[in-house]
Design a protein around this nucleic acid. Structure first.
Length: 514
RNA sequence: CGGGGCGUGGCGCAGUCUGGCAGCGCGCCUGCUUUGGGAGCAGGAAGUCGGAGGUUCAAAUCCUCUCGCCCCGACCA
């Protein structure tokens, strides 16, 4: 592109985001977050500042998920950010999994150094780690709270931040600090704990599908992808628009591993003493990254109405100053009527944007992903109508409704958008989920045509796997493809391993992953 | 931590090879015009060119070091 061409671009721009998804997906993702005003990078490496528009989205996710947890008997609590180093050391697998990404606090004071700069002073007797997850410190409480089978099950959750010092970070998908919830439960029997593990996975799947409008595959992780210290890890996997998989929630059956490590013992009805069976399950602000990559387009963010930061932007239009009062009054009245409408677990959220910035104003809301934009001018007032655009339709495709009709139908319209986003994501997933039985085809599926600048390719390959780590590693090394999960549904019986040809009990989901 | 790319007003970038007044588009501010839609004209504000050191009469540009970001690996929600 010459400089002259570039300078002419603003006049010719067709999409609000450059580059487009097809041109450069990772860069498109960054740009969507920037122009939609969700978040920005922080001065601290690998961390992010979640801005009000992004935090509102998170609050909506939290509200819905929290209600679902509580409906299953879970209560909220809060445990400390700092964990004694000795606690982490208690479970060998757990140490191995998390030790290398722990932030460690070693001092409790700052002093002026010789050069006048502040230096850490006051060495702590035992270093504290900043929680990467809270199994150990919650286990410590459980060990004191649980004495009898009558204390079980113990069903707790906490909403908090955690820190995992990552090599490579991506905003919302993998940041050094992130917000999440972690549920921790203790049970008298393995069966009950296993049931809970599955129950919470289903909550995550419902959250993803019914609220975030993201279809997911439910399944079980392979041993190599399991949570450090867990007996079994269940997950939901979603397909992003670049056809890569995103793990959107995990639920772990921890067996008695952590109970042994933290001495969580209880007296049974027949007076023996046993270790409790525990579970843990988590989902994070990564869900926002998934929402962005599942729905947004080349004009910016698209938010499913059920979790959207807000539902409707009202854009009053006037030509002369004397028209303004009437338009503003009509807008305010419409806002009041819309705000009285119940949508899901909250009322319809309305933004009034009375900036006098011409047409650019509408594009701001498109980029920010609001489901509905309503233009209100003198003509609409005369006709007692509203003229509105939907984020799931092209920007210029707008329709008119009478004001009463719009207020009466807004819930139906929002539901329709929600459903359409889900269906669109489901189609993408279906079109790019393929049964593959021949190794050659498998390799072709996951090999981009342009190795230097890979185009969007691949998807979910439903193929057979013999169960050996050798074969799992082979495809990982050859293609950077991993087994996302052993799915619960869509099994088609036994077959031959895609890698070695040995017998395989079921198809598994192979994909490139975030 | 290894390989590649990149750091220049809020955003996107040119200028770097070949050292010579720091520029362009969008955005922002003011005024006039316009008004059913990403407005037009005029004027304006905003940069220690990521940072430090060096070479030079002169450094965005050359050299050394350093910090950060993006992509590809290794690791992960």
């Amino acid at each position: 592109m010459t400089r002259e061409e570039r300078n002419r671009m603003p006049k010719q721009v067709k999409t609000a985001i450059t580059p487009t998804r097809a041109e450069d997906y990772p860069e498109w993702y960054q740009q969507v977050i920037k122009v939609s005003d969700l978040a920005e990078r922080s001065p601290v490496r690998g961390c992010m500042v979640i801005k009000p528009w992004g935090y509102a989205l998170w609050e909506n996710i939290v509200r819905e998920m929290d209600a679902m947890f509580k409906a299953t008997g879970v209560r909220n609590a809060y445990f400390p950010l700092f964990i004694p180093l000795s606690f982490l050391e208690k479970e060998a697998q757990h140490v191995e999994g998390f030790a290398k990404e722990c932030a460690v606090v070693t001092h409790h004071k700052l002093e002026q150094g010789p050069d006048g700069r502040l230096v850490p002073a006051g060495l702590l007797p035992e270093p504290l780690i900043v929680r990467p997850t809270s199994e150990t410190i919650i286990g410590d409480s459980f060990s004191r709270w649980i004495k009898s089978h009558r204390d079980l099950p113990m069903l707790l959750n906490q909403w908090c931040n955690v820190v995992r010092w990552e090599m490579r970070t991506r905003i919302f998908l993998r940041t050094s600090e992130f917000l999440w919830q972690e549920g921790h439960t203790a049970h008298a029997t393995a069966e009950e704990a296993i049931e809970r593990t599955r129950m919470m996975l289903d909550v995550y799947a419902r959250m993803a599908e019914d609220y975030l409008a993201i279809p997911v595959v439910r399944g079980r992780k392979t041993a190599s992808e399991r949570f450090p210290g867990a007996v079994d890890t269940l997950c939901i996997e979603a397909m992003m628009q670049d056809r890569k998989a995103l793990q959107a929630g995990t639920s772990h059956f921890l067996g008695q591993n952590f109970a042994r490590a933290s001495e969580i013992k209880f007296h049974t009805a027949d007076e023996s003493e046993e270790y409790a069976w525990t579970t843990s399950w988590g989902s994070s602000t990564r869900l926002i990254g998934g929402l962005i990559m599942a729905h947004s387009d080349d004009d910016g963010l698209i938010m499913p109405p059920r979790v959207a930061s807000s539902h409707v932007a009202l854009l009053p239009i006037w030509r002369t100053p004397d028209e303004r009062p009437a338009v503003m009054a009509y807008t305010a009245e419409l806002a009041a009527r819309l705000r009285a409408v119940r949508y899901g677990n909250r009322n319809v959220q309305v933004e009034i944007d009375d900036r006098d910035t011409g047409g650019a104003r509408g594009w701001d809301w498109i980029k920010r992903g609001i489901p509905l934009r309503v233009e209100i001018g003198p003509r609409d007032i005369a006709a007692d109508a509203v003229f509105f655009g939907r984020r799931d339709l092209p920007a210029r495709e707008k329709s008119a409704l009478s004001r009463d009709q719009f207020v009466a139908e807004i819930v139906r319209i929002l539901d329709e958008i929600q459903q359409k986003l889900f269906n669109r994501a489901l189609s993408l997933k279906k079109e790019n989920t393929i049964l593959i039985d021949r190794q050659e085809e498998f390799y072709r599926f996951f090999t981009p045509l342009n190795a230097d600048k890979p185009e969007i390719h691949g998807g979910f390959a439903m193929s057979h796997w013999c169960g050996s780590e050798t074969c799992e590693n082979r495809v990982k090394e050859d293609l950077k493809v991993t087994i996302r999960c052993l799915p619960f549904e869509d099994q088609t019986g036994p077959g031959a391993c895609i890698c070695c040809g040995k017998p395989s009990p079921q198809r598994v989901v192979f994909a490139k992953a975030y």
